[in-house]
Write a protein that binds this DNA or RNA. Structure first.
Lengths: 215, 215
DNA sequence: TTTTTCAAAGTGGTCTGACCACTCAATGAA
DNA sequence: TTCATTGAGTGGTCAGACCACTTTGAAAAA
């Protein structure tokens, strides 16, 4: 039992993955209790905990004392402390996270704008209307909508994670300059003008980035 | 003692960071033993282990039974690997894996071709020469070179994983049609012609995809 | 003296059982 | 019906016990 080549807790991480899959546990769903897992996997509870703690540190699960362990909702903005204090200490890495997130965003824009089906989706007109009436729009909402429409679940998931790990305060108070870029982006998407959409996106992103750096 | 608002193991992660800093432990260096840490921090050994296992899963430390715990290079963190086992779990759509890999490839091409520094790298001319002389070139080698040159480690890591996951036999026997596309791609990169580079890449990819589907 | 052997100490890996703190729902009293 | 209580379930932590493995240094052999 204790004579494995692979470490037990890593095996448990794997088992958990399978369990989540086979029992179709969705984000927010509850995992079996530590004691039950120990029993089912025939290992000690402390070993199960080592695996769970690892996943918790990664932000993949959430634990609530007295309640249980839950699968994390990717959408939830929960900053993983280590990443900021440990890994993401390296500025180059932080930059890579942002850039990589933007890669996925840009490609989604290209796909949506380039598809005569996708760029006619009523959601774009609706968002544009909201922008003009309310005078503001949440960046995340718009981008998410685009990612979802681009219809690549893998890319969407990566985006969620990158966003989570790249954590940064996109201030909601849109200024005119930003709104202009967003409006251009939406319009370009609806027009199917890929290049213009990308240009608008870049302008928008640049606007945000500058705001971030000057802080 | 057990009445903290912050979880003990997270506090230990923090303590460890400070300890590493204050004792100036460098990558490869040895950390205090689990028993010593438990003693110094006045916590149980199992709690220390929960913290250590978390950091190990992230690839921040390495443990060797009978020897001890060692610090690894931060830059070697396993964030992508670990997350991928969970992300790729239900997103079984092979199609998405391919498309997402291509997203990263295309963006790298854009970056390299768009940089007057990167597109002048001697490696492109060298590869072009190899193609013309040998009449063939390994797709993976070329793409990897581009990814590396684009200078985004995170993206590079993702690419490696996606490649591994999408695993497919890119037959090496280049035919004239394929060689033509590759040659165009390399030339376009050196010319700094982003659009042409992307077109050539797409043509090349399409050629491969067709070969894949007919199989 | 030099080399070999091997037992002890140190370290991570795992299990067990014990409490504590907290949540929730069923139970029973008002 | 409403409210208070209590007990079961769950995560948080600890202490102590073995096991498997590596290093090391002292004793034995050459």
């Amino acid at each position: 039992m204790t004579n494995q080549t692979t470490k037990m807790y890593l095996q448990i991480v794997r088992e958990l993955r399978l369990l989540i899959q086979s029992e179709n546990i969705r984000p927010g769903g509850k995992l079996p209790s530590e004691r039950e897992l120990a029993e089912r996997l025939q290992v000690g509870r402390s070993t199960v905990r080592e695996a769970l703690r690892s996943l918790e540190l990664l932000g993949l699960i959430e634990t609530k004392r007295g309640e249980g362990t839950f699968l994390t909702d990717f959408r939830k903005h929960k900053l993983v402390e280590v990443l900021s204090t440990f890994i993401l200490q390296d500025t180059k890495t932080i930059e890579d996270v942002h850039i990589t997130r933007e890669i996925h965003e840009k490609e989604a824009i290209r796909i949506v704008a380039g598809s005569t089906v996708l760029n006619q989706l009523p959601v774009w007109a609706s968002l544009l209307k909201q922008l003009q009436e309310d005078g503001s729009i949440v960046r995340e909402d718009l981008i998410r909508e685009i990612l979802i429409s681009s219809n690549n679940r893998l890319s969407l998931k990566m985006w969620f994670l990158l966003k989570q790990y790249g954590e940064e305060p996109y201030q909601g108070h849109s200024e005119d300059e930003e709104n202009h870029a967003i409006q251009q982006l939406l319009t370009a998407i609806m027009d199917g003008d890929i290049e213009q959409a990308i240009r608008s996106y870049s302008a928008w992103t640049k606007w945000l980035t500058q705001g971030r750096e000057t802080t």
